[in-house]
Design a binder for these strands. Structure first.
Length: 580
RNA sequence: UGGGGUGUAGCCAAGCGGUAAGGCAGCGGACUUUGGAUCCGCCAUUCGGAGGUUCGAAUCCUCCCACCCCAGCCA
């Protein structure tokens, strides 16, 4: 059988740099291996929801199949019925489709092969390469030895083939209790690779399976199942993550002993993201403990969470193509994902105006009861998206943040006596600040507009530095807006101080719900999952909790905010002067 | 101290003996009816370290160092 080859150098093809896996594949095609055929598989275990790390693997496997005119199977690795559920297989299928990939008719389950696998095991016994072992779990561990000491051979290792066949058959028929016996491969108890010290092939588990019901009470282990499932399906390149590197000799051993079609296992480094955890177990725990609302909480790195948050499948695929592929472990900056999303939505998302924290302004020289419908472009990046009419009237709301009574340097929004532009509308000047005499809170602004600046232009060439978004008080729709931020405040959650866990670094501000927002009336007909750019603020997505009477938006990501940076720098400078 | 891997910028990542691609982040500047977008510049004399081979080394050799994975009847 062919030995796994060292990852060869990356090569360029048509100027595009190939990663090490595609380089191997191109070399295999060139040499005519498997007749030039390329067949991959995405093999999730249905014991949890898919996350962005899985997206990397999905894009890789389906992407390669597509690129080399091959196929990619969806195969559920369902050999442990005590952890797996149909709920998960349904969500996985939905997520893969949503990401934009199609396995067509090739939906397989490892459990489909239970009969084949049993026959292969019998074959191994007949070849004298497997035996039934009566050691219990604890004893097997003792016999296995340690990392630095060799193991000891099981006293049951040299049973006759007939006895093994008989015992294995009786394991299958349910004669023995859970954990009482196993079928083991007879390899090498002295191997430096623990996986080769007579690994378990089958264990007894009197547990019903979500697909095979109670047909089986023995279930095959991963190593035995995976290589043979790959072989049965004619997989050419079996791509998995780094921790399986040690398993490759076993993967190869089973296939060599059984003399069956031999795919090649290739390992790559899984995705890690800054400020994010990717462990299924920890993610499940966040849901169970109520730290987040569910698997699709918009702060979760699950596909469903990202989807609800407003990420597009296109942006996730772009991200996966940009993070690279290698064998070194790394933590990708979450800023790259946000960049991909902004790049996508900048071109595609319609622009609308929404005021998150409304400040009422009255245009004192604008006629009462008058309404003008002004032209507003839907996307300056794409003319074909057209325009819409937005209502302007005497009473408006602007963003509270866009007014300062005592503006700092470089602040060029509204302030007493200052003139700014209302986007698509008029120039206005702030004439008066009305405050609550008791609390001093600003209640409203009295402004005047320049009728000669309709549309936001001035013939006299007068410049205004600030342009604000706004909504007409009478026409605007009330909305709830959920502002999301990273769930964790720590960049690297895998390298924590003694005694700390990721839960010690939860970001207390990961969710801020604004109940009293105002959005422009064109949003009345918006459909859940539709995405918008709220001008000057960020990208938002209509949440599924929305009802006709109550719009709810999730903030996906903010726009780049140069002013926030400038202000932060000024604050830093000031605090340095104060010696704090 | 056994076996298997990996070290190139703040974060990813090319490079495979001919003199350090690209992206993200950051920093300048232009432009702007989004402080958005766009554009233009800057950002590794050095590749974990030390020796060696060579006219020439991130690339080859030797030794060393650091980090990750493996002792489930999980996947």
């Amino acid at each position: 059988m062919e030995k796994p080859i060292e990852p060869p150098a990356t090569k360029k093809k048509n100027g595009v740099i190939l990663d090490f896996i595609r380089t191997i594949i191109e070399e295999d095609i060139r040499r005519g291996k498997h007749g030039g055929r390329v067949h991959t598989r995405f093999p999730p275990e249905p014991n949890g929801y898919l996350h962005i790390g899985h997206a990397k693997s999905i894009c890789l496997n389906f992407g390669i199949a597509d690129q080399y005119n091959g196929f990619c199977n969806l195969r559920f690795d369902d050999t442990n019925p005590s952890k797996e559920e149909v709920e998960y297989v349904e969500s996985i299928k939905e997520d893969v489709h949503w990401l934009g990939f199609d396995w067509e008719k090739r939906e397989y389950y490892a459990s489909d092969y239970f009969d084949n696998l049993y026959a292969y095991a019998v074959d191994l016994i007949k070849k004298g390469k497997a035996y039934v072992c009566d050691l219990n779990a604890e004893q097997i561990r003792d016999y296995r030895g340690t990392l630095t000491e060799p193991g000891k051979e099981s006293p049951y290792r040299n049973r006759t083939i007939e006895e093994n066949l008989n015992l294995f058959e009786r394991m299958k028929t349910g004669e023995f209790p859970d954990g009482s016996r196993t079928l083991r491969a007879k390899i090498d108890m002295c191997s430096g690779n623990l996986n080769m010290r007579d690994p378990v092939i089958y264990r007894i588990l009197h547990v019903p399976h979500h697909r095979t019901g109670d047909k089986w009470c023995i279930y095959p282990m991963y190593d035995f199942t995976h290589c043979l499932s790959d072989s049965i399906e004619g997989i050419t390149h079996s791509i998995c993550t780094l921790e399986f590197e040690d398993h490759r000799p076993l993967y190869d051993w089973y296939l060599d002993q059984l003399k069956v079609f031999h795919p090649q296992q290739i390992e790559f480094a899984r995705l890690n993201l800054s400020y994010t955890i990717m462990s299924k177990r920890k993610l499940l725990n966040l849901v169970k403990e109520g730290v987040v609302s569910d698997w699709d909480d918009p702060r979760m790195p699950t596909i469903q969470g990202l989807r609800r948050r407003g990420y597009t499948p296109e942006s996730i695929r772009d991200f996966c193509s940009r993070i690279g592929l290698a064998k070194r472990e790394s933590i990708v900056d979450i800023a790259l994902l946000d960049h991909c999303l902004r790049e996508d939505l900048n071109k595609r998302a319609p622009r609308v105006m929404a005021v998150l924290k409304p400040l009422k302004i009255v245009i004192t020289n604008y006629p009462e009861n008058n309404v003008e419908w002004l032209e507003a472009e839907n996307n300056p990046e794409d003319e074909t998206m057209g325009s819409r009419k937005i209502p302007f009237s005497r009473v408006l709301y602007i963003e509270h943040e866009d007014f300062r009574e005592d503006p700092p340097k470089k602040y060029f929004r509204l302030a007493p006596g200052r003139e700014v532009r209302l986007k698509h509308a008029y120039y206005i000047t702030c004439d008066e600040v009305v405050k609550d005499p008791e609390t001093g809170r600003i209640l409203e602004l009295r402004c005047s507009y320049d009728p000669a600046t309709k549309g936001g232009w001035s013939k006299d060439g007068r410049k205004v530095k600030g342009t604000l978004h706004w909504v007409s008080a009478e026409h605007a729709l009330p909305a709830e807006i959920r502002l999301y931020d990273q769930l964790f405040s720590r960049e690297n959650l895998d390298d924590l101080e003694e005694g700390k866990t990721h839960l010690d670094f939860l970001n207390p501000n990961s969710l801020d719900v604004l109940e009293d927002c105002r959005v422009e009336n064109s949003l009345a007909e918006a459909k859940p999952e539709s995405r918008f750019q709220f001008l000057r603020q960020g990208y938002f997505c209509l949440d599924k909790d929305s009802t006709t009477g109550r719009l709810i938006f999730n903030r996906t990501v903010i726009l780049r905010d140069t002013w926030a940076k400038i202000e932060q720098k000024m604050l830093n400078k000031a605090s340095q002067k104060n010696g704090t």
